[in-house]
Simulated scan of single mutants.
Amino acid sequence: MSKSRSSEPRGPSQRQLRVGELIRRSLSELLSRGDLHEPELSAMSITVGEVRATPDLKRATCFVLPLGGGDETVMLDALRRAKPEIRHQLARTMKLKHAPDLKFEIDRTFDRMDETRRLLSDEKVRRDVEAADRAPEEDGE
Rank of each mutant, 00 (worst) to 15 (best):
H37N: 05
V64D: 00
E50M: 05
S7W: 10
V74N: 00
S45G: 07
E85S: 15
R108H: 12
R108N: 15
I106Q: 03
E21I: 05
L65I: 03
P55F: 08
G70K: 00
E115F: 12
S2R: 04
R117Y: 10
F63A: 08
L36C: 07
D111A: 13
M44Q: 01
A99F: 10
P12K: 04
I106W: 03
P55D: 13
R25E: 14
S45H: 04
S42T: 04
E72H: 03
D35P: 11
P9G: 07
D107H: 12
D56F: 07
T116Y: 13
G68Y: 00
L22E: 13
R112M: 08
Q14M: 14
K103G: 12
V51M: 04
M113C: 14
V51L: 08
D107I: 09
E40R: 04
P66F: 00
S4F: 04
R108M: 13
L27Y: 09
M94N: 07
R33K: 08
M1A: 15
L31G: 06
A99S: 15
E72N: 02
I86P: 08
E40W: 02
V48I: 09
A91H: 09
R10W: 12
Q89G: 09
D107W: 13
E85Y: 08
R59E: 11
S42L: 03
G11A: 11
S42G: 09
T47D: 08
R92D: 13
E8T: 13
T73H: 03
I86H: 12
D111R: 14
M113N: 10
T109H: 08
L31N: 04
L57W: 13
T61R: 13
I23V: 12
M113T: 13
E21A: 05
R25D: 11
E29Y: 06
L79C: 01
T54D: 11
G68P: 00
T116F: 08
R117W: 11
L65A: 09
P55E: 10
K3A: 04
L31Y: 09
H98P: 10
G34R: 02
F110K: 13
A53K: 10
K97V: 14
V19N: 10
T93Y: 15
M1T: 07
P66W: 01
E115W: 13
A78L: 00
K58V: 06
D35Y: 10
Q16N: 13
M75A: 00
R25M: 10
S32P: 03
F104S: 05
G20N: 04
H37F: 07
R5K: 12
T93E: 15
E29V: 03
L17S: 03
L57I: 02
P39R: 01
I106N: 02
K103R: 09
E115T: 14
P39H: 02
S42K: 06
H37R: 15
K95A: 13
G69Y: 02
T73P: 00
F110T: 10
A53G: 06
M44N: 01
L57E: 05
L67V: 05
S7C: 02
I46C: 03
D35K: 14
L76Q: 06
T73I: 03
R25N: 14
G69C: 01
R112S: 14
A78R: 00
L22C: 15
D114P: 07
E72A: 03
